[in-house]
Design a protein around this nucleic acid. Structure first.
Lengths: 342, 342
DNA sequence: CTGAAAGCGCTTACAG
DNA sequence: CTGAAAGCGCTTACAG
């Protein structure tokens, strides 16, 4: 199943393979009638260039990698990632790049993976998810050292000089908590993300700032850590309950859903007894009972922007470090009790 | 950033590049001390072979593609796909293959995608999700014609001679509905998957067979179609309600969750008024209230097996068409009312 | 505008 | 067991 080569096409048309190559790559300086004839033969024969040969000759693969250093669980437990991946895939298709997907859960995975996630592998550049423990940290570090075009998704733990893209987590959390405060809640608690991740840290910081600015004392018993899973939110809420919060800001919707379950089991009511605000605006947020007030991220667009940033770096050389910070919006539904209070 | 080549390593060791190549590829017939010296230099220099060159010379990329012809919505709405993808990625890592991810939603996507999903692209073989409308059908057909090693995930609509892997959907549905029947329910309804997909058809068939064998008349008003989304299950249940079913088999958990919401809104109780059985055993199934009785698929293992089948075909040539059918198991929780009835 | 030629970094018979 | 050589299918200066 060898398939046609450039040479075959060239012979059929009666030109050199340089010319066919120029036509295929859309270079100017080809006489118009020649171009037409070449195009026609390509059409007729269904010729497609061999990607490996092209890559070898041009040192460009038009393929990027998405590296998700994740433990098994959270990847398919949180709807965030599929959606994000979708955005990435869509943008790749648009920009005519091939997407390689690399999930690393274990240390062993990392070792097998690394050679492939490099320029010697097939890649022109890589997108790596920030955070997620040791695997993630070390992988990112090695990637930076390898000096392959790189965009970190989410503020990196260390400001290591790589470009990154993130949403404005602190600001978003600040807005959410301020909203609760304005509604008159006094004892506002929070279920944070992992303290080892910058998402966790930044959203927590937004919470703290809002509390302070609004003149609320921040009590330790009102702050507890979750792990971005439903179960994590559930247990976190159980820990929060004794502190008698009248409102809770959860750092993700899926944790808010878990919290809701804990509240229901305690025979309390959302929002009458405890108001709730989440983060992400996953599809489930609009379907829960009560519907979840939350911070909407434009996850799809986020993925698209990440790819655009990366391909820009690939194609236009080493620009100074770039950061892109995306805005969010608060979506007010039922769980914060805003309607009730009017 | 050229990096080291085989030649560089060969020079450093003082052998030909043929020898280094043999060592890298683990060929026998290399004197042991030579092998050691080569290995050491590779270690020291951090040499990794250039994948494009390797692919061009050997006509093998060790890369496979996962093609998901999907509309935007269902991919991140149903936890099934992330989990499946995870299994695929894990197996690829294990078997030392690179995974390319291709999501096609629109016709335009398909056109841009096709050249890359072929041997001329980078791929040694492809895994394509069966069904999902026109895009999927046509893509699969073109893939078959291109004669690239191919495994269809899920029984194909047309028995076109491609290898495929699937779970035993009809059998699983049969078991689930028989279970409801044994519990004494009389008016058992079903929310099917799309009639255009083989999953939809096969699970429906299992339902019909169980009903018939158990001497239940199948009433049209007890069968309605969903689209594997929460909202789809919700509306389907609303359509079913007037028929007064005392039990419902939903062809996916996420639809069962939607159905539950509709039942709750109608001020009815699961399982007292209407018993419910789902399909998939997604994480949410164990967290819903009441917990969902469902058919468990070993999705991760399913993904792994799919990759193993494909790589086997790639590496061992055109075997006769292969089919792999995987078993499922019924997980009895609360929503079917089994416990209540004892 | 077009072609001949070198080169990308490997693998793989073929000799020895 | 080892090396010299051809070849994989392109791109890209370099001439003209």
């Amino acid at each position: 199943v060898a398939g046609l080569t450039l040479e075959d096409v060239a012979r059929k048309v009666g030109v050199s393979r340089s010319t066919v190559s120029r036509v295929v790559n859309g270079h100017p300086h080809v006489r118009d009638d020649v171009r037409q004839r070449v195009l026609q033969v390509i059409e007729e024969t269904g010729y497609h260039p061999n990607a490996a040969a092209r890559t070898l000759a041009s040192q460009r693969s038009r393929m990027i990698g998405l590296v998700l250093p994740r433990t098994v669980n959270s990847f398919f437990t949180d709807p965030y990632f599929p959606q994000f991946t979708q955005g990435i895939a869509q943008a790749c298709n648009q920009l005519d790049y091939t997407l390689g997907l690399f999930l690393a859960g274990t240390r062993e995975d990392e070792e097998k993976l690394f050679p492939r996630v490099s320029r010697r592998g097939f890649l022109d550049g890589v997108l790596v998810q920030s955070g997620h423990g040791q695997i993630g940290e070390r992988l990112t570090e090695r990637l930076i050292k390898s000096s392959i075009p790189l965009v970190i998704v989410g503020r990196p733990t260390q400001p290591d000089g790589a470009s990154y893209i993130d949403v404005d987590n602190a600001e978003a959390a600040y807005t959410a908590v301020s909203h609760l405060s304005r509604l008159g809640y006094q004892r506002i608690g929070t279920i944070t993300g992992p303290a080892s991740s910058t998402v966790g840290i930044d959203r927590r910081e937004g919470y703290l700032r809002a509390m302070t600015e609004r003149g609320r004392a921040v009590e330790d018993c009102l702050v507890t850590e979750g792990d971005f899973t439903e179960a994590g939110g559930y247990y976190a809420m159980q820990r929060l309950l004794p502190a008698r919060p009248d409102a809770v800001f959860a750092a993700s919707d899926i944790m808010a859903i878990g919290a809701m379950r804990a509240i229901r089991e305690a025979h309390l009511h959302v929002p009458n007894d405890i108001a709730l605000v989440g983060f992400d605006d996953i599809p489930l947020a609009a379907l829960s009972d009560p519907q979840l007030t939350t911070v909407r991220q434009h996850v799809l667009q986020f993925g698209i922007s990440a790819v655009e940033l990366l391909t820009d770096i690939i194609e236009n050389g080493l620009t100074p470090q770039r950061r892109i910070i995306m805005a969010t919006e608060l979506v007010i539904r039922e769980s914060c009790g805003a309607h009730r209070r009017r």
